[in-house]
Design a protein around this nucleic acid. Structure first.
Lengths: 207, 207
DNA sequence: GTCTATATAATGATAGAC
DNA sequence: GTCTATCATTATATAGAC
């Protein structure tokens, strides 16, 4: 387990965690410094003392998450024995509680380094697929990775709509169980046959 | 072309269009009634006169978009000669200018009827695919349609991240051109082989 | 490091004239 | 239908005591 940062568990850390929660639940604009301070068990003045402003507090949240992802990736890279499943478990435990925040931050165009990290992972995944692919891809790996990463995040970002549609909170553990077989099915069945794709591609170049 | 609603082009319509723009650009919370009024060329008092409150104004925006989609779908259903391409063109022309608003509304859990309509379309699409599919799907069509719809919307909702990654504004016409071949490639190549899917599926049921 | 109290600015809502 | 003027609320930012 990654465990908490050193020099954490302080009031500063409590404020940041409370901010993660409030920003995630209510959005940046609706969340209030006073509310965050209350959840953290401190005064609003102390929030300012530590972070300066509401924006700076959000930046700190983004940076904390990026650092956490970095830490996890490093751990996987170092600890060769760690299997993919464990990676997922660790990542889930670390980011699970912050899914709402991450979803909001990403849809607001923030947490860019987090998104970029995910694009990297997506790119590695696609690269492996390319190795055993018959036809040569006509679009750059990186571009496909960007779109694939966005698609992978769509459930989190649109979790309210998806949860409503499926009748389960997809950000909850049960939701994850419901989601898994659906994603498995979707990801193992192409929506377009090679012929259809070729047909549509030729139409594109015609315009 | 659908053209503007009857009883439109009035101050009320201008206010609604301005609201669509401001909510899309700045988000609901940051957008101000005063700013919307200014763009519409009216006073803030008139906004209240017509819509009552900021929330009600947003509801009107959602309803307008849902109605527009309804109108387009009806038109396609009636006018049998309309081809898929035209449908896309009409839909693009109608919703293109409001993509930012739609993206925000969806990620905030709003515009639910719009999302549901898209799930329906997604469901029809998947149903056709199921017909020429060898293995029987193990998850309900509807559930797959919900997730597929969310994935299809991910580019719009995460347009800031995707645009940054691709180096083009994906909500612009050029962006659409860049995007098309990428989506074609992704949608015509499964990320998981049947064997991998089966392997993962068995792991799921084991837990 | 932490708190209380205050200043200030912005905004949604309202009332009433034309 | 449309506008101007005002109210009341809320929340960030600040200053200064402990």
């Amino acid at each position: 387990m990654a465990g908490p940062d050193p020099e954490d568990l302080t009031a500063r850390a409590r404020i940041r965690d409370a901010a993660l929660q409030h920003f995630g639940e209510h959005g940046f604009d609706r969340a209030t410094i006073r509310g965050i301070a209350e959840t953290a068990g401190v005064s609003s003045g102390l929030v300012r003392h530590h972070f300066g402003s509401k924006e700076a507090l959000r930046d700190a949240c983004d940076a904390y998450l990026a650092k956490a992802l970095e830490r996890i990736n490093d751990q996987v890279r170092t600890d060769g024995a760690t299997e993919g499943v464990n990676y997922v478990a660790v990542a889930g435990a670390t980011f699970g509680p912050h899914q709402a925040y991450i979803a909001r931050a990403l849809s607001e165009g923030r947490a860019t380094s987090l998104f970029d990290k995910l694009v990297e992972l997506s790119q590695q995944w696609l690269a492996e697929l390319d190795d055993r692919r018959s036809d040569a891809p006509e679009v750059p790996l990186k571009d496909r990775a960007v779109v694939a990463a966005a698609m992978a995040l769509s459930i989190a970002v649109l979790h309210q709509q998806v949860s409503r549609g499926l009748g389960v909170d997809v950000l909850s553990p049960q939701g994850a169980e419901v989601l898994a077989p659906i994603l498995l099915d979707l990801y193992s069945h192409p929506s377009l046959s090679p012929e259809e794709a070729a047909e549509l591609r030729s139409r594109l170049s015609k315009d």
